[in-house]
């Protein structure tokens, strides 16, 4: 034993990587949390203090369930990497502001334990945990999850989201949409706050523009063709700013774990997302379709990656061509020999 230890010290040749990047999971997750803070602040300002309570409860539910699960299964405790915090925040920002607290808490437990940990923890889940939990809650608690009552309103009249208003054929104010003076879930209402966070993520190079860019572009083109409104910039802008499109495109579709990693794959992924969202919004029964579009595309992700693997150095088209020629030559020689 001693000898081997000595030898290791003398000539320690480890396999690659020899250089390590300072970017850690923790750093990335912290950036995402920072980027979501403007949207959260706006949500709290716009909907009241209860929105903050919902967010804290959801984050706590996620972190605690991750801790308890890993403790019970005797796994390394990974709550300090911040991924559970991000899941909790995304889930909370997807909640309507008047939600009874037990619903987001249940969603947080579901996201972490069923969607993330049962598949092997961070990096192994095939679906975005927060979005899967949101869909779980949408199906389970349809009524409270779609109750976008504006808190503080005198009569507490339930108000429709801008997308629902547009679906009904009426028009909405783009300025209100952009700033976030509308009803909706806690985090999705203010396009401005979300874009601020997105700009931060892009500047920090946490995300690339490929997925969100292609997503929104495809969506706009799809709406241009199929929405029946034609080239109406005002309507298109409202469709982009309303609902969860911007939040989904920059914060949820760009999840490393559940999205493709290859550059070409990311473009394809964005296109699929855009088309699916368009289909759900135009032809679907409900006004919104971002979350279902994203989890459906999550499932397609391995297939996309399979067909978009970039060519490695030394394995290009010409190398293949040369190989093919060599093989053909061999074959002809072979045939010639046999013929003789």
């Amino acid at each position: 034993m001693e000898q081997t230890a000595e030898r290791k010290k003398l000539a320690h040749v480890s396999s690659s990587p020899h250089f390590r990047t300072p970017v850690t999971t923790r750093r990335l997750m912290l950036d995402v949390v920072i980027a979501m803070i403007p949207a959260l602040l706006w949500g709290v300002y716009h909907f009241g203090f209860y929105a903050l309570v919902v967010t804290i409860a959801t984050v706590a539910a996620c972190v605690i369930s991750e801790y308890v699960y890993e403790r019970c299964m005797k796994l390394p405790i990974t709550i300090d990497d911040g991924s559970a915090v991000v899941t909790g925040m995304i889930l909370a920002l997807n909640m309507p502001p008047q939600i009874p607290l037990f619903i987001p808490v249940l969603g947080g437990v579901f996201a972490i334990i069923v969607v993330k940990q049962l598949y092997g923890g961070l990096g192994q889940n095939f679906m975005n945990p927060a979005l899967a939990a949101r869909c779980f809650l949408m199906i389970s608690f349809a009524k409270p999850m779609t109750d976008f009552t504006m808190p503080g309103a005198v009569d507490a009249v339930s108000s429709a989201t801008p997308l629902a208003v547009m679906k009904a054929g009426e028009s909405v104010s783009l300025t209100d949409l952009f700033i976030g003076n509308i009803s909706g879930t806690i985090g999705e209402v203010s396009a401005l706050a979300l874009l601020l966070g997105a700009a931060y993520l892009l500047a920090r190079k946490v995300i690339s523009i490929r997925i969100p860019g292609m997503y929104i572009l495809t969506f706009v083109v799809f709406m241009l063709v199929f929405s029946g409104h034609g080239l109406d910039p005002y309507y298109l802008a409202c469709q982009v700013c309303g609902g969860g499109l911007i939040f989904g495109a920059f914060f949820m579709a760009t999840d490393y774990v559940t999205g493709p990693l290859t550059p070409a794959g990311q473009m394809v992924y964005g296109v699929i997302l855009g088309v699916l969202t368009g289909i759900f919004r135009v032809f679907g029964a409900s006004a919104e379709g971002v979350s279902y579009a994203i989890i459906l595309s999550n499932i397609l992700c391995p297939l996309i990656e399979k067909y978009t693997v970039p060519t490695a150095f030394g394995k290009g088209r010409y190398v293949e061509l040369t190989k093919k020629l060599l093989v053909e030559n061999k074959d002809t020689k072979h045939v010639a020999k046999e013929g003789r």
Binding site: P100, F102, L106, V114, F136, I139, S140, F141, A142, P144
Partner: peptide, 16 residues
Amino acid sequence: ADFHVSIFVMAPGAFF
């Protein structure tokens, strides 16, 4: 009724 997790009486609930 407020606390019914109705996904459990649908198809996904069976799998869970």
